[in-house]
Structures are given as C-alpha cells and as structure tokens.
Design a protein around this nucleic acid. Structure first.
Length: 549
RNA sequence: GGCCCGUUGGUGAAGUGGUUAACACAUAACCCUCUCAAGGUUACAUUCACGAGUCCAAAUCUCGUACGGGCUACCA
C-alpha cells in the first residue's frame, strides 16, 4: 500500500491538496511595512476585557501600518460553545468601534477573500493539511483512549518522568501500517497526532515582539492535530489558518507563550515561514494580597458588559487600554491635545512584558476627562442612549425636556477647564436629578450652618421679596445676595467675616447655601446662578414655598 | 514534579552602566473660591523583591534565592 492509499484510508473524503489551497488563497498585496493581524476568539462566553485589549492592539497595529485586521471565529470546541457567542463578539467589537477589514460580519455573512473565517467551516482544509503530513510520515493515527492516556500519565508520575505523549511514551507512534489498517477496518476511534521531530534537549531561540529574546526547549510532544470529531486542535488550526490567511503578526495572550515551540515546529514541518508573535501579559486583579488574571467568572468588571451597564463611554475604555498598552500614550496625548488614538503610533516594544493591575479608578479618571471635553449635545445623545437601556425614567425625562437637559449638561462646560463631575452616564441621575420636578419629590433637605427654620424662612422671604430678579446677570445676582447678607447681619465678604467672626452671624456663603439647599436639597452642586437660571423664577418660588410645608 | 515568564512608590509606569529615579492615577496639606467639581502649589521610592558577583561606577550586566503568574487536554 502506498502512502497515498494509506492516507486515503485515514482521510477518505479529502481530495484537495495543500497546493490546491495555496492557489485558492492568493498572495496578499500589501504595501511596505503593512502587517496582517487578527482577533481570533472562541465563542465560549461574552467578551472579556483582556480579549478586548488584545483585539484593540491588533486592530490598532494593522490600521497604523495600513495593513489588514480580520476576525476569525475559533469554534473548534463544540462542547464549550455558547449560543449567540458569535453575535456577542461582533456586537462588542462594533460598540467599541473596532472595525474589521475581513472576517465574520454576522451569522451568514463574511467579508474578504481568505475565508471561510469560521473554523468549523474549514474542516476539509485542516484535514487536507493533515493528510499531507500523513503522506510524508509526519503524522499518525493514535487509538489511545482517555484511560490509556491517564495510565501513561500515572506511570510517568510514578517514575518522575516528564508528563506527556512523546518519545517512547508515544505508544501508537510505533504501530505498523498493517496494525493501523487493521484497527481502522475494525472501526476503532482515533485522533491524528504529529510525529514530532523535536528534541527536548535542544533549544529554540525566537524573538518575541513584546517579551524579547526567548530560549525555549524544542517541542517533542506528539500533539493531537485532528481530534476525534475531525476538527483540528488550536495549534493545528493556527498553523493552517494563519498560513493561508497570511497573518504576519500573531497578537495573543501570554498563556500561549509556552506553546510557541509547537507552533514554530508546525510551520517548520511544512516549510512555511512562521509569523511574528507578540505575547501580551494579562490584565490582573488583586485578591488577598495576591495577583491573578482578571476572571470573568469572579470579577464583574472583567466583562465588557459591565462598562456598558455603567455607561462608561467606549472611547474612554479604549483610551485606558491604550495607556496600558503604551504608557507613553498619556503624555503624548497631553502634548497633542487635538489628536486622538488614531494619530498615536503604538509600538510593540513599549508594551509591558509583565501583567498590570486593572485600575478602575484610573479608567474613571480618563472617562471624566473624556466626558468633560464633549459638547453638551453629545453628552445628551450618549446619556439618552444609555438611559434607554438602563434607566427608563431618566430616558423619559431626557426625551421630554431635551433642550433643558442639554442646558443642564452645559453648566460649566464651555470654559477653559470644564467641569468634571461625570465619569459615566449612570452618574447623570445622581448629579442632576433635582433639576427635574418629577424627581423632586419625597425629599429631605441637608442644611448646613443655618438650619433654624425661622431664620431660613426669613432669609427666603426677604430674598424673594426684595433681592431676587431673574433678569440679573451673575455679578448683580451675587451682589444682591451679598446685600441681603448684610441686611440680615451676615458679612458681605467671607474675608470680612474671617477677620472678625464675632461681628457677624455668618457670611454671604451661608446665605447662598440656604438657597442652594432649598433649591436642590444638596450642599454641593454646580454653579448656583446657572442652576437658578435654568430653574426659572416660577419653579424657584415654588421650591422656596415648599420648604417647611 | 518539569519547562517558561515576570518582580521599580498604594496603582500604572519612564528608565538599557554615571539622572535630584520622569510622568499620570490615588492619597494628604495649603491656596483660590458662595458649595462642589475643576485649577494652582507642595508632600509622598536615600532606593528599584532579596543575596552575592563584575565594574572606578549597577534599577540597568551575571549568578543564586524568594515570591507571583502561565503552560504541562481529543480547551482555547
């Protein structure tokens, strides 16, 4: 029996050869320096911050070199797959404005000439590549059961030998062709393993784009390349896909670092040029003084949806991820205030090789700065979008009072250093609720120094009667409060009061605090004049009369 | 167990043989101010996990130790 006949017995349905596929996938026409990257998630859960981080870097790198960024779905583990996994990934990418040049667009559509971009649809391609290895005696069927494998492991543990399916432990590597043919005719289940040409004593040296020069032991494991269900393992799919799709730079989490010798060997066995690798350290979380990878199971903040539900702008998340990736980004942005992430030149070398704690505080700070630079109408649009999903009552109010709401968001916004009190759109309710009569119910006032109701009423009545005029500009408005203060025995100026506290009942600040609390119930608010202008005289009177009822 | 990777302030970090060890977040104090937010000023690592070595000189180079992380699946 020839090698071809033998390979046909193992993979009878495969008719195309590697050469056929080389013709189907044309060479990419890229300009000098352009790189091809990808995001290749498994649809096993919703998108994780660490995955978004890697996807962001990959897309950014491709874009800034005018290369290609594509999305490939790695659904070779049918057991772990979840429903809507693929659409979840696509939606999240869209929400974050991470555009793909090629890949999966939705359940039934793809973009690009290098597909299919869903691995389960590429079964024959992988098998064709596996067939090539079988023909060349670089792969073989393995009939070991789970128990067989466990027994091998146990024996290795007892003998304190290195664990794995390699060398003399690779039981079925030494099966004769006749035995194999017999077993196959007998319908015995099998997987296909690589016949590894490696030696563990030898070192492979390679240069990681972020970790630098590395020396790893050569792979000598006869790893599974085609599983019992005919689908490839990650390693083999990586080889086939990234070869055919002509990925130049593989950007992935550093949990893959120790698999690099396998991957390098696979490329070598086929005589293909391996891509460059950039292994990104994970985002970490501190727990009981230890650091561990941010986990979607344990940490709510690991899921992208967490930020969505808080109303943290996607742009802010991207800005944060960009500073984590290249910490010089922050300073660069500070020096180039009119520029955006798009203009920034990200570098692999500047990506930290050690994992960093995910810093929500810092993210919120970035978010605050980001929101402060938006136009009031943009804040409105985003707040509307947010509340439509997460706060319907607020949504109705925003819709009902559109211009009024925009004016609220505009308070202290148009100035050289805009107000920064919103870090997320869920803060809007917390910060602005009192501006809406519908929410100004069942309230409790939090008075400060002046808390005697008799005095408070006196102040308010006098204010309404003689000192309040809606048409006043800010300066006259405040001067009148000062006049009122003086009339009632309070100091006109704070300084004046501080110099001789005994001469006064308090100062103008105490008087305006009364007004502030009456109108908003709070001691801390944005500019009172602006608030009063928006509230208008009718509502002001109403709220003043409401006190003490 | 084996093999890798990592370790600079509370956090993210700059730094690649000679620096006062940048910068940002956080924290604290003060200033400004009718409150808050913002802004301004200042403080915050005698020291770069620890121990040795090389060198006139080490956070930077070498070795060892400790601690943390990853991989060691017919999971990715």
């Amino acid at each position: 029996m020839t090698n071809e006949e033998y390979a046909n017995l193992l993979l009878p349905a495969i008719t195309k050869t590697i050469e056929d596929y080389k013709d189907i996938y044309p060479k990419r026409n890229l300009k000098e320096g352009a790189i091809v990257t990808r995001y290749a998630p498994s649809p096993t859960g919703y998108v994780h911050m660490g995955a978004l981080y890697a996807a962001f870097i990959a897309s950014k790198m491709a874009k800034q070199t005018e290369g290609v960024f594509f999305l490939r779905i790695e659904d070779t583990d049918k057991k772990r797959e979840i429903e809507d996994g693929v659409s979840g990934i696509i939606n999240d990418l869209n929400n974050y404005g991470i555009a793909i040049d090629e890949g999966v667009l939705n359940e039934n559509e793809e973009l690009g000439n290098y597909g299919p971009y869903i691995q389960s649809k590429r079964k024959e391609i992988y098998q064709s590549f596996a067939k090539y290895l079988i023909i060349n005696d670089l792969a073989y069927p393995c009939f070991c059961s789970e128990d067989d494998l466990n027994n091998i492991r146990k024996e290795q543990e007892n003998l304190k030998e290195r664990i794995g399916y390699y060398g003399k432990w690779a039981r079925d590597r030494y099966l004769s062709k006749d035995d194999i043919i017999k077993k196959i005719n007998n319908n015995e289940k099998y997987v296909i393993r690589l016949k590894s040409p490696g030696n563990f004593e030898n070192k492979v040296i390679y240069d990681d784009l972020v970790k630098g020069k590395l020396e790893l032991p050569e792979n000598d494991m006869d790893i599974v390349i085609i599983k019992g269900d005919g689908l490839p393992t990650y390693h083999f799919a990586h080889l086939v896909d990234d070869y055919l799709m002509q990925t130049t730079h593989v950007i992935r989490g550093d949990e893959w670092l120790s698999s690099v010798p396998i991957h390098l060997q696979l490329f070598k066995v086929f005589g293909f040029k391996a891509p460059k690798y950039a292994h990104i350290a994970p985002l970490l979380k501190e727990e009981n003084g230890n650091r561990r990878k941010l986990s979607k199971r344990k940490d709510p903040e690991a899921a992208i949806s967490f930020y969505h539900s808080k109303g943290i702008p996607t742009q802010a998340v991207l800005l944060y991820l960009c500073t984590v990736a290249n910490s010089n980004f922050e300073m660069w942005l500070d020096q180039n205030k009119d520029k955006t992430i798009e203009d920034f030149k990200m570098e692999f070398k500047k990506i930290s090789s050690s994992g960093s704690l995910f810093d929500l505080e810092k993210l919120l700070n970035i978010s605050r700065n980001y929101i402060s630079k938006l136009e009031a109408s943009e804040v409105y649009d985003k707040a509307l979008e947010y509340s439509k999903i997460y706060d319907l009552e607020m949504f109705d109010l925003l819709t009902k009072y559109k211009d009024y709401s925009i004016a609220i968001f505009n308070i202290e916004r148009v100035q050289k250093k805009p107000r920064k009190d919103l870090a997320m759109f869920s803060d809007i309710r917390k910060e602005n609720w009192y501006m809406y009569d519908e929410l100004f119910e069942n309230i409790t006032y939090h008075f400060d120094k002046i808390n005697d109701m008799v005095e408070i009423k006196k102040i308010l009545n006098l204010y309404l009667e003689k000192y309040y005029n809606e048409a006043d500009d800010k300066e006259t408005w405040f001067n009148r409060i000062k006049d009122l203060s003086q009339t009632l025995g309070y100091a006109k100026e704070v300084k004046e009061y501080k110099e001789n506290p005994d001469n006064f009942k308090g100062h103008c600040g105490d008087i305006s605090m009364v007004l502030r609390v009456v109108l908003t119930t709070l001691q801390q608010t944005p500019d009172l004049y602006d608030i009063m202008q928006l509230l208008g005289s009718e509502r002001i009177e109403e709220r003043i009369n409401k006190v003490g009822d």
